[in-house]
Amino acid sequence: MIAYFANLATLVAIFGILAVTLNFMVGYAGIFSVAHAVFFGLGAYAGAQIALTVAPDPLLACGVAALIAGVLSLCLALPALRVRGEYFVAASLGLQMVALTLFSEVKSLTGGIGGLTNIPRPRVFGVEVGVLPLALIALGLLLWAIHAMANGSFGRTLKAIRDAESAAEALGKPVAVAKALAVAFACAGAGVAGALFALHMSFVNVESFTLDQSVLVMAMVIVGGTGTLFGPLVGAVLLLSLPSALSFLTFIPPTEVGSVQQIIYGLAMTLLMVFRPAGLLGDQNKGKSHQ
């Protein structure tokens, strides 16, 4: 059972990273992206290729992954600078769908649907280490960074943009730079999560980076509460442990297990939103946090 929980904890930590970084974009900068899985994927492929071709050094893998995801986040920053609201959601959706096709087709780098297999276990100075401590450290560092930024001048600039972009611009805030930086930071974080994911699973393929996955991460943020520091983490724990918990319901016939789990998962998402629309940790009275 310990191995089982360690596996689950590692996934929760990795998705925790995804959720808190997405929350940084959504909650603080008001950029609603449904393409977070794209940068998760870029990081995973980068990390996997580093581990396979250079060395299974997690620091190197995470660094390269963060760099690649951060640089390519320009694809997302560009529309973010042009449009907002539903338009941006649609743009990120377009990006997600196009990226998915690219992930499937650029087989020399991604392995397509067959994926990259046999990714070696991470080693630091020649010693094999588990992914769980690495992921927890990364998560802690990112939380600390987000906390520091949210309360610093960068955070104030972002919130000003979120709440009234034109006013912020009129006040001379560097709107374009701040937005691009927020997107780059969040996407680099997703890249780190991707590299850790690749090292943990020893296998990556395009199916881990679908629109589904993006929506799952988005759901974690919303369910936990946007703009709160720990809300997304709560969302990650909840949405990841739900299906695992459901799998212990042994009275469901084997052929219906998948569907029943999905139905309960979907229902939980909907009901939570209907009854706690600001998320579990969000301020219910404050209500909506943007526009």
Binding site: A219, V223, M269
Partner: peptide, 18 residues
């Protein structure tokens, strides 16, 4: 509840899964 645009998105997505 003045739920945000994305609250609606997640809720609707949940329904489509169901």
């Amino acid at each position: 509840h003045e739920g945000s645009f994305f609250t609606v998105f997640v809720a609707a997505f949940g329904v489509s899964i169901v």
